[in-house]
């Protein structure tokens, strides 16, 4: 998916769903339903908060503790969150493969030490992706996290790694004349993309 990087002005605003530390990819994308179409697996995403999948609204944000997305290389972990409409995740730190998978899918994730203590469930946050600046509208607190490098931001602004590939094909750098279909929607996976 090519999630919009940010709203007008480069700032995301949303309501917070707060999670704890060491939330793993298995609970974001349980293996037992991983091969099913998204509509059948959406109810199984992050069941550690049973109401989350049903009540999360497009544009909502997730705030999490240390090591969000630890575990498997399965791409459905960030993909499920993006497909549920989560606009971005702000966490103390991330599992590294999850973090890279999210960049490859153009789904914004920002490391921001201190965010977990400073945020309560249901808070309204503003997130400026370019500067990794997070503002809490309830408390007025402003935290500055670790901004994406220009290289990472470039992949996200391109719409993800597949779009980067598509551009290389269009520029004649790759490929073999097979027609590419710009903007073809990414269909839901029919088998596990990648695994433990």
């Amino acid at each position: 998916m090519s999630a919009p990087v940010a709203e007008e002005g480069g700032v995301l605003r949303g309501r917070v769903w707060k999670f704890g530390h060491d939330v793993d990819t298995d609970v974001m994308a349980p293996w037992g339903v991983i091969a099913r179409p998204f509509e059948e697996r959406r109810g199984h995403v992050l069941k550690i908060r049973p109401e989350f999948a049903a009540e999360v609204a497009p544009g909502d944000l997730i705030v999490a503790g240390r090591n969000w997305g630890c575990g498997s290389s399965r791409e459905q972990a960030p993909e499920n969150l993006a497909l549920l409409g989560v606009a971005a995740v702000v966490a103390e730190s991330f599992g590294r493969i999850y973090f890279r998978n999210a960049i490859a899918q153009a789904f914004p994730n920002v490391a921001c030490p201190g965010i977990w203590e400073a945020t309560e469930d249901g808070d309204e946050l503003e997130l400026d992706l370019a500067t990794a600046t997070v503002s809490n509208r309830r408390t007025g607190a402003v935290l500055v996290g670790q901004p994406y490098t220009s290289e990472m931001l470039s992949i996200i602004e391109s719409g993800g790694l597949l779009e980067v590939l598509r551009q290389k094909v269009a520029a004649g750098e790759l490929g073999d004349g097979e027609p590419s279909v710009p903007g073809t929607p990414v269909p839901p996976p029919t088998s596990p993309r990648s695994t433990p």
């Binding site: 791409e75 493969i97 890279r100 998978n101 490859a104 790694l161 980067v164 590939l165 993309r193 990648s194």
Partner: peptide
């Protein structure tokens, strides 16, 4: 790595 990154590096 995930599938999308593998696709990129395969290409």
């Amino acid at each position: 790595i995930g599938v999308t990154e593998m696709t990129y590096v395969l290409a």
